[in-house]
């Protein structure tokens, strides 16, 4: 799941080398934290959160396949 977020984020930001995704296992499932350069925040979040929401939708496909839950936050 981490790789999926990395792939998408790196392809839409101006500073792909600054994209960092960490994956934590919690009791509720998987927690992904996406960090990008301050200037790229808007690109990964999108207007009204549309971009991050689309990423969450795709992550859900993987989560369902793995029988788990996933949460994605941008920080």
């Amino acid at each position: 799941m981490k790789e999926l977020v990395e792939y998408i984020a790196k392809a839409i930001v101006n500073k792909p080398d600054d994209v960092v995704v960490t994956e934590e296992q919690s009791e509720g499932g998987v927690l992904l934290k996406l960090q990008v350069d301050q200037e790229d925040m808007g690109r990964v979040i999108g207007k009204q959160g549309r971009v991050v929401q689309a990423m969450r939708t795709l992550l859900r496909v993987v989560a369902v396949k793995q029988g788990t839950r996933v949460e994605l936050v941008v920080e």
């Binding site: 839409i12 971009v51 990423m55």
Partner: peptide
């Protein structure tokens, strides 16, 4: 899901 995929590919 299809529309999310399409939107992200369009952005990339």
């Amino acid at each position: 899901t299809l529309y999310s995929l399409q939107y992200l590919v369009y952005l990339m």
